[in-house]
């Protein structure tokens, strides 16, 4: 079996947000203007979530955590969708069917990570910005929910390429845009079920943890905490 997973090393991550822009460009996310932003209407499939720690009056600590969809193995979002417009596939990618979604936003409220976004209005690209749109990813209509797809379209391309070259898919063939862009090389991607893959090795290390693990959602985005790695990877 294949289970696609992402590892984010918080020790390497510099909170530069390159992953955020990489995702927006890759996935044809419309630019939000000042008023959209002010009203909490901007769309991003990955964001840097700020966690302030430390008691009041002492030196605060700030942890900034890149937050894409966790592609939960037990996704609370897919269960609640009344029309099955969001679903987990056999390789663990939680997908979104824009053509079927009725825009009820039940999935957005059910997701404990709040990573889903809704298209409040028509996506707009002032001319000639639409020329930069990628042909690989459809433009979402107004009124539907969207979210990180693990750049699923890149899997299709990687598969085609491997097939054309007559070989199986290799670790690293399929990398989402954010992973590819990350300047600190803090993001990794691959098949968790392939024990030799980089993500499987990192996920087995002592620094690995998952967000809101106690909810039992079994995220497939695995974080590495700060600290010694305790071994070669």
């Amino acid at each position: 079996m294949t289970r696609w997973a992402m590892v984010i090393d918080l020790d390497r991550c510099t909170a530069c947000q390159a992953c955020v822009v990489a995702c927006q460009v890759e996935n044809n996310i419309p630019p939000a203007d000042q008023s959209d932003s002010a009203r909490g209407r901007g769309i991003s499939w990955i964001r840097l979530a700020p966690f302030y720690e430390g008691e009041h009056g002492t030196r605060p600590e700030l942890r900034l955590v890149p937050l894409p969809c966790m592609h939960c193995e037990h996704p609370p979002c897919t269960r609640v969708c009344p029309v099955g417009a969001t679903m987990i596939d056999h390789e663990g990618i939680v997908g979104q069917n824009y053509a079927r979604c009725i825009g009820c936003r039940y999935c957005t409220t059910a997701c404990p990570y709040t990573v889903r976004r809704f298209n409040w209005k028509l996506p707009e690209w002032p001319a000639p910005m639409e020329e930069g749109l990628s042909p690989d990813v459809s433009v979402r209509p107004r009124g539907v929910v969207e979210k990180c797809t693990f750049c699923h379209h890149r899997l299709q391309v990687a598969r085609d390429k491997a097939r054309m070259e007559g070989r199986p898919l290799r670790d690293g063939d399929y990398l989402p845009a954010c992973v590819e862009s990350c300047p600190a090389e803090a993001m990794f991607f691959g098949d968790l079920d392939d024990r030799r893959s980089i993500v499987a090795r990192l996920a087995a290390g002592p620094r690995a943890f998952r967000l809101l693990e106690e909810l039992g959602t079994k995220p497939k985005v695995i974080y590495l905490s700060k600290g010694e790695s305790g071994g070669d990877v």
Binding site: C16, Q17, A18, V20, V21, A22, Q24, V25, P31, P128, M129, E130, E131, G132, E180, S181, C182, P183, E185
Partner: peptide
């Protein structure tokens, strides 16, 4: 790799 600005270059082009 690229930073935010490099990634957004396409927005500047168009």
């Amino acid at each position: 790799r690229l930073c935010t600005k490099g990634q957004a270059a396409i927005q500047a082009l168009y």
